[in-house]
């Protein structure tokens, strides 16, 4: 089985690292060799955060090569652009249709509002998902990460029972049902 490469990107505080941990745990529970290399520098909010999850029969490097990523899961539009060069030609970009303005340090260009169109123009298979809206609707904007993970799950070869068990194992009791609903909602948004 060839290695599947997933890159998860977002803004600090959005839960990109948790999403990648869930994916890594699920892939491991599904019997795959997994490496997950994450960047979590500082505790504060707001910086760019990314994490690679790679799984297959045998995985060496913790981060995928540029042009090798099968799925980019972006919790924010600008962050999708930042890591799009990692995606294979024709690969899938699942992007939260959500904008977080960065603080300006020097670069005064306007925010690239056309990010989704731009990525489509590059030939990627772009799936724009209203994950934050969905999460707010479900009661907590912070579960947008799990909504997106649900969308991604539809394209991966990891059985639903494994996902369910992983959520139960990793998510604290009081947040479990919320996250289960977020995951289910995300699956419904995959268009599949």
């Amino acid at each position: 089985m060839p290695v599947t490469n997933v890159l998860i990107a977002g803004v600090g505080g959005q839960g990109a690292v948790l999403a990648s941990e869930l994916l890594a745990l699920a892939a491991m529970a599904a019997g795959k060799d997994v490496k997950q290399g994450e960047f979590h520098g500082v505790a504060q909010r707001g910086g760019a955060v990314f994490s690679h999850v790679r799984f297959g029969d045998r995985v060496h490097a913790p981060m995928a090569r540029r042009g090798d990523v099968d799925f980019l899961l972006a919790l924010e539009k600008l962050e999708a652009l930042r890591y799009a060069h990692f995606v294979k030609p024709g690969g899938t970009v699942i992007v939260n249709d959500h904008k977080v303005e960065p603080i300006r340090v020097g670069d005064q260009r306007p925010y690239p509002d056309d990010a989704i169109e731009f990525l489509k123009g590059k030939g990627f298979n772009v799936l724009a998902v209203q994950a934050t809206e969905k999460a707010v609707e479900l009661g907590n904007h912070r579960t947008a990460n799990v909504v997106l993970l649900g969308t991604l799950a539809e394209s991966l070869d990891i059985p639903l029972e494994v996902w369910e068990a992983t959520l139960r194992e990793r998510i604290p009791e009081r947040l479990l049902s919320l996250n289960q609903r977020a995951f289910a909602a995300g699956r419904g948004l995959s268009g599949a």
Binding site: Q44, G47, L78, A84, P102, I103, R109, Y111, A115, F118
Partner: peptide
Amino acid sequence: DLSEDVAILPRPPV
């Protein structure tokens, strides 16, 4: 990366 084609603004922590 794609910064030649599109404004990939830096995003420092706040």
